[in-house]
Each structure stands twice: as structure tokens, then as C-alpha cells.
């Protein structure tokens, strides 16, 4: 009876050791994050561990920023010179100038004609 109980005790002891080992390991691995539970340090420490998945998630935001250039810039043909966008309010000014010149010429011709006529009359 004692032998059986001894064997059973050994088996249980071995079981405890086997089961206890992961517990001890788990405690060791979980302990470091626990004291550094402050959010800032947490992110810094966990970021490297999550690196395999992070690059894809960090790349995603850059994809939308790269998309906006998609609206293609329309081309433009640059014209030469300045636009002529005024006809002038005094459009008839050139006609008035011609009339003035014509009038002066008429007066000169008429004056010369009258002078010539008087001279011819005196001579006769």
C-alpha cells in the first residue's frame, strides 16, 4: 500500500513539475510587460514584436496619400502674347481725325483757290 502511494506520489510530483514548468515560464515572460505597463513603453516594446504585421498596416495609410495625385493634371497650350480684350469706347475717333484733316485740307485748298482767283482778277 505504501509502495503504491509512493509511486502515485512520484507520478503526481512529476505531473506537477511538468505542469508547473510552463507556469513558471509564463510567469517569467509575462512579468516584464507587467511592470512596464505605462502606455508609452508598452507601445515601444510591442512595436518590434508586431513588426511583421505592422509594415503592412503602416503602408496602408501611405496608399491613400499616394492616390490623390491620380487626378491627372490637364495640359494647357500657352498662347502667345497678350489678349486683346478691348475695342475702345472712342471707336469713331479715327473717323473724326480723318474729318478734321479733310476739313483743314479743304480750307487750305479753298483759301489757295480764292487767292489765285483774286490774283487772276487783278491781272485781268
Amino acid at each position: 500500500m505504501r509502495i503504491r502511494s509512493t509511486v502515485a506520489g512520484l507520478v503526481l510530483g512529476a505531473g506537477v513539475l511538468v505542469l508547473g514548468a510552463p507556469i513558471a515560464l509564463a510567469d517569467n515572460s509575462s512579468q516584464p510587460p507587467a511592470p512596464t505597463a505605462s502606455p508609452a513603453s508598452e507601445r515601444q516594446r510591442q512595436a518590434p514584436a508586431a513588426q511583421p504585421s505592422e509594415p503592412s498596416s503602416r503602408v496602408r495609410p501611405t496608399v491613400p496619400t499616394a492616390v490623390p495625385p491620380a487626378p491627372q493634371r490637364p495640359s494647357i497650350v500657352k498662347p502667345v502674347g497678350a489678349p486683346e480684350t478691348g475695342g475702345g469706347m472712342q471707336d469713331s475717333s479715327s473717323g473724326a481725325g480723318a474729318l478734321v484733316i479733310g476739313g483743314i485740307a479743304l480750307v487750305v485748298v479753298a483759301g489757295g483757290g480764292s487767292v489765285a482767283y483774286r490774283r487772276l482778277r487783278k491781272q485781268s
Binding site: 493634371r73 494647357i76 497650350v77 478691348g86 475695342g87 469706347m89 471707336d91 469713331s92
Partner: peptide, 25 residues
Amino acid sequence: DKAPTPGELGPSIILGHVDGNKKPG
């Protein structure tokens, strides 16, 4: 019409006379 349309990326151009036909434009 050889430039971007108004609202489109780039400079759109609209022209108008200051006057013409002896009238304000």
C-alpha cells in the same frame, strides 16, 4: 478651352472685353 476647365486642377482662363462697340464690356 485649351486649359483646365474651372474647378479642375491648374489654371483656367476666362476672358471678357472691357469695352467694345462703344459700350462697356
